[in-house]
Amino acid sequence: MDLFSSTFNVLERALDYSALRQKVISENIANADTPNYKAKQVNFRSFFQQELRNAFEGRRTDPRHIPIRSSTSNPVQQTSNPFQYNHNGNSVDMDEEMSKLAENQIYYYALADRLSGKFNGLENVIKGGK
C-alpha cells in the first residue's frame, strides 16, 4: 500500500515540466538578440502522452505474462517555428515569450498551491483534525 496517493507524483512531474518550460522560455528571452537563434519550446502534448503511457503499471498474475513497467519520461524540446522576426535571422518573438512566461508562472504557482494543500491535508490527518 502506498503511503501517499499518486497525486504527489503527478504534481511533482507537472512541477518538473513547468520548471523546464521556465528554463526554455528564459533561454529564448536571453537570446532575443543572438543572430540566427531559433526559439525553442517544450512540447507538452508529447510529454503528456508519454506520461499517460507510463502512468500505469500492470500487475502480473502469472510469470508468463509480459511485464508492463512504468518509467519516467522527459518533455521534448524543439524549435518552435521557422519564422524570422528580426533582420538577423532570429525567431524569438518577445511578446509571445513574455506571455508564455506569465502563463507558466501562474501554472507553477497553481501547482505549488495544490501540492501545499495536499501536505496541509496530511498534516491535518496526522494531528487528528485539530
Rank of each mutant, 00 (worst) to 15 (best):
P75M: 01
L122I: 15
L20H: 03
S116P: 01
M98A: 03
T79G: 00
S46N: 04
E57L: 05
R21A: 05
R45D: 12
F119S: 10
L3P: 01
Y108S: 03
L11W: 04
Y37S: 01
K100W: 05
T7H: 01
K100S: 10
S80Q: 09
V125E: 07
R64D: 06
Q78D: 07
N120K: 15
Y109P: 00
Q49D: 14
G128K: 05
P35W: 10
D33S: 15
M94D: 07
S5A: 11
R114P: 00
S46C: 02
Q78S: 12
Y109R: 09
N74V: 04
T79A: 01
S80L: 10
R64W: 04
E27M: 10
G121M: 10
G129A: 11
N36D: 14
R114G: 00
Q41E: 13
S18K: 08
R59G: 04
A30G: 11
R59I: 12
R64Q: 10
G117I: 03
M1S: 13
N86R: 15
Q84E: 07
G58T: 04
N120I: 05
A110P: 04
S70R: 14
N9L: 09
Q41S: 09
T34L: 05
Q78T: 12
Y37E: 02
R13V: 06
S71M: 11
Q78E: 15
R60A: 15
S80H: 07
Y109G: 00
D95Y: 09
K100V: 01
Q78R: 06
S70E: 13
Q84G: 00
I106E: 08
I106M: 11
L52E: 06
K38Q: 14
Y85T: 00
G89F: 10
L101H: 14
S116D: 15
T79F: 06
A19K: 09
M98E: 05
Y85Q: 02
Q78K: 07
N43Y: 04
K23I: 03
S46L: 06
F44Q: 03
G89C: 06
